[in-house]
């Protein structure tokens, strides 16, 4: 295919990606080093109050925004360097806390709270999702043919559902004296309030995410299991390998490229954790990095959006995902070079 034809085919898609992915990215980088503020001026305002014999004159200094000829507030954009980053990371506060030796206090600052949750969330769900997905795939593979279709249908439901709604549906089982809370109270014989402290909400979020992702992992592994080499399996049996050894030395190595692929996708997606925060309304206790940016972007009480801070926090989020993805990306790259993909 000639370059010109190739360009004609790929052009529209490339144009969209440049305009709506690459350009905003550049804009975010620029925004994170600049700040836009209304220009303020301080004026002395003389107030004269009529009184008996003499009037009372008070002079007050008032700070107010400068208006242009249309009556709009004038704004100026200036370069502030790393100021926004320092604001988001609360660097002075952290330095003070480090000197004081109060390490635990750092995790109460928004950014570190979000970072801690996002990372633990990603790293805890990752092995669980793979193990559980593999277990379901093996179970379906061993089941009779007739029930596989219905099982796949039911399994797809948690995956296809709107994430916010999925989180809500689990929250409604536990909220107040919902049936699951009532069941847990009866079972453990103690009072339980799932939404009163951070860690129980986190457990629910982990549960939700695993519930949501397992169908995808299961379907991919199930497809992979269909291509396991039967001869290898049989020779493993002849060599006296137990069921567990066959799984460990034949099936899992066969599925390895898929495991890397799923890890890559899962790390990308779970690092973006956001819908759970909305669904469980957990912002009082637990927040994630994406939610932090979202919060900066939502207008506050006076209608202002903290764009520069949002830009700084999204840049930090991006640096995080790059660090997280280096290892699986290199693995995929090696596979590509080795011709496995």
């Amino acid at each position: 295919m000639k370059l010109k034809t190739f360009a004609a085919f790929v052009g529209p898609s490339l144009f969209l990606m440049c305009l709506f992915i690459a350009a905003p990215l550049v804009n975010v980088i620029w925004q994170s080093f600049h700040i836009t503020q209304p220009i303020m001026e301080t004026v002395a305002v003389e107030t004269v109050t009529p009184g008996f014999l003499t009037s009372t004159v008070t002079v007050e200094k008032v700070t107010r925004p400068v208006l242009d000829e249309k009556g709009q507030v004038k704004t100026e954009t200036r370069f502030v360097g790393l100021q926004s980053y320092r604001n988001v990371m609360a660097s002075e506060k952290v330095a003070a806390l480090l000197e004081g030796g109060a390490w635990g206090e750092i995790l109460k600052i928004d950014f570190y709270k979000a970072l801690r949750f996002t990372l633990t969330f990603t790293l805890i769900t990752w092995p669980l999702v793979i193990a559980f997905g593999l277990a379901v795939a093996l179970a379906v593979n061993a089941a009779v043919k007739a029930i596989r279709g219905p099982v796949i249908f039911v399994s797809l439901l948690p995956f296809i559902i709107t994430p916010v709604i999925g989180a809500l549906s689990i929250r409604w089982l536990f909220v107040g004296d919902g049936i699951m809370t009532a069941f847990l109270e009866w079972w453990l014989e103690r009072d339980i309030a799932m939404f009163a402290q951070g860690w129980t909400i986190e457990v629910l979020m982990l549960f939700y995410r695993i519930w949501h992702v397992v169908p995808f992992v299961f379907v991919v592994f199930y497809a992979g299991l269909q291509t396991v080499n039967m001869d290898t399996l049989e020779s493993a049996i002849i060599d006296g390998a137990s069921r567990w050894e066959r799984l460990r030395y034949v099936v899992v190595p066969h599925l390895m490229p898929l495991i890397v692929f799923i890890s890559l996708i899962h790390l990308m997606d779970s690092y973006r954790v956001f819908d759970e925060i909305v669904g469980f309304t957990s912002q009082g206790h637990v927040i994630s990095l994406q939610w932090l940016t979202y919060d900066f972007l939502t207008p506050d009480d006076s209608g202002n959006r903290a764009i520069s801070r949002a830009a700084a926090s999204s840049m930090l989020t991006m640096i995080g995902i790059v660090i997280l993805l280096i290892a699986p990306m290199r693995r995929t790259w090696a596979q590509h070079k080795g011709g496995q993909l």
Binding site: F20, L25, V26, L289, Q290, T293, Y294, L297, A310, S314
Partner: peptide
């Protein structure tokens, strides 16, 4: 891999 919030900020 880009988180969507990054793009929306843009």
């Amino acid at each position: 891999a880009l988180p969507h919030s990054v793009l929306v900020t843009g």
